[in-house]
Amino acid sequence: MTNKKINWAATILLAIGALAVLIPLYLTITIAFKTPEELSSNLFNLPKHWMVSNFTNAIKTTNFFVALKNSIFVSFFSVILTVLTNSMVAYAIARNMDKKFYKLLYYFFVSAMFIPFPIIMLPLVRQTSTWHLDNLFGLILLYVVFNLALNTFIYVGYIRTIPVELEEAAIVDGASTWRVFWKIIFPLLGPMNATVAILSCLYAWNDFLLPLVLLSNPDMATLPLAQYIFQSQFSTNYTLAFASYLMALAPMLIVYMFSQKWIISGVMRGSIK
């Protein structure tokens, strides 16, 4: 057997990175169950009395279930529309990359990944307000558009690995382009559809800045925005605040833990070409 050398530099960096994630997560969980007195006495100790009532109080004060309903509504429809529309756009580009227009269109979409949101934030708010899209439906539409850049990149790379002969055979049998896409290409995009759906869901669920600048009605607040409103009103009640943070964090944390392999493998497959 050959002894493999340990890369201590990489190991130390990975350990530091793991601690940078685990320590805040530990504090979030423990603070959510503490009393204010326990929080002020020692930050890192486990709670002596696990205060489940913090969560019930946080649910009442943050209007949690209304915000949860809004987040589920936005995340669900943004995922469905993103997968359906972005895959069609990417298919049209991938099968016409030999044409100058589609190649320019591909680079135009991909270049949008490098544009910071604050640059377009104010014009976007003005435009959505003028078109009466400063609501949950406008939020869904913007998520679909903003996801297009990354999704085009990973979809196109994957679609170009699918043999064109499959489509040519279907066209010879009389299938239209629309039928070819939905009956042949879209089912083959299963791994990429799963990756895009998970990434889009995480983005829509966790996003804070876009709902903050777009939504003016508090009844439309998503979970991240509801946490911000609660914190601004009860800035000193950290135990309730962290209980609300934990409830908002838990669903997507569980989703990511069980789906991270699809996310990583999908991005790797989409970057082949």
Rank of each mutant, 00 (worst) to 15 (best):
L136N: 11
D173M: 04
N135S: 10
I140W: 00
L141V: 15
L133W: 11
L148K: 00
F186A: 13
W178L: 15
L189R: 03
V144F: 03
R179H: 14
L141N: 03
V180L: 08
V180Y: 01
V180P: 04
P187T: 11
V145Y: 10
L148Q: 13
F137K: 15
G190W: 12
T152P: 00
F137G: 11
F186K: 00
S176F: 11
V144P: 00
Y143Q: 08
N135Y: 10
N135P: 06
P187N: 06
E165Q: 13
A170N: 04
H132R: 15
G138I: 04
L189T: 02
V156S: 03
I159Y: 02
L136H: 07
N151P: 02
V144L: 07
N147F: 05
Y143I: 03
T161Y: 08
Y143P: 00
V164F: 12
I171A: 15
V164A: 14
P163R: 01
E168H: 08
I171T: 15
F146G: 11
E167G: 01
L166M: 12
L142F: 13
L150P: 03
I171F: 14
V180C: 15
N135D: 15
Y143N: 09
R179V: 14
T177H: 15
F153Y: 12
L133I: 06
V180F: 06
P187Q: 05
A170Y: 02
F181T: 01
E165T: 13
E165A: 13
V144G: 02
L133T: 06
V144Q: 00
H132A: 14
L139W: 07
T152K: 03
G190V: 14
A149K: 00
N147L: 07
G157K: 07
W178M: 14
L150T: 05
I171S: 13
N147K: 08
R160K: 13
L148Y: 10
K183L: 15
E167W: 04
V180T: 14
L188Y: 11
T152E: 11
R160S: 10
L136W: 06
F181I: 05
N147V: 09
F153P: 00
V172Y: 07
I140R: 01
V172T: 15
D173H: 04
V164G: 12
R179D: 13
E168N: 10
Y143A: 00
L139H: 06
I162K: 01
Y155T: 08
N135G: 06
L189D: 06
L141D: 05
T152I: 14
P163A: 08
T152L: 12
F153S: 07
F181W: 08
Y155Q: 04
L133F: 12
F186P: 01
I162S: 02
I184R: 01
D134L: 13
W131R: 09
E167I: 11
H132W: 12
L139S: 00
A175C: 15
I185F: 04
N151Y: 05
